[in-house]
Amino acid sequence: MTPAAIIEPPAMMELHRVWKVYSVGPVKVPALSDVSFQVTKGEFVTLHGPSGAGKTTLLRLLYREEIPSEGEIQVLGLDLARARRGEVAALRRSIGVVFQDARLLPGRTVYENVAFVLRVLGTPRREITARVFEALRAVGLSARAQAYPAQLSQGEAQRAALARAIARKPLLLIADEPTGNLDEGMAAEVLDVIRDVWAGGTTVLVATHQKALARTLRRRTLTLQNGRLLKDEG
């Protein structure tokens, strides 16, 4: 029986006394210190803190790009410290990740960028077109399907990255500073899309250093500072 079968959601993710320490030569630098919290299915959680607070490290731990130095992390019931490569891959298929810099593939159109992830996961060809356009419609980019990333505004690029993340219909959406590079108008557009995704039943975790944004969202907010969880409110 897999761990996912033992611990069913609503516990979407659970962190228990998590530490992440980097070694810089002989010096140990803690990026996260004794962080514990739980996110249940369908929640919208904002992870707030200044630059260098450990937000990105925490997110990377959640999709197992990093492993914790100490403590336990379970995402969708999978113990990430003990997970094997195949289990991690299976977990990632249920998680959509959006980065501050969008990370679109420059040689491919918006359509191809979204279709690419569906193709590598073996989605049947006949389903791909429908799902790509469904995702592009959701982010308001249907008309820009044939544009290359260099032809997009930053807001459009971020929405394209969101389309790529949601085309796979993830159970969990993780966004790392999705509005960090955007002006107010564009940031609002992107947040509207994220809200829509959440309203559709996807659990959302958004990391931001913008206090105003965290307030605007008016959702549960976890505040990180110097790698420690200071507040869990809302």
Partner: peptide, 17 residues
Amino acid sequence: RDEMEIMRLVGAPEHIV
């Protein structure tokens, strides 16, 4: 490299990467 990173991130099997 970007493609491979995206492929790994979305959970593509290693042989596909």
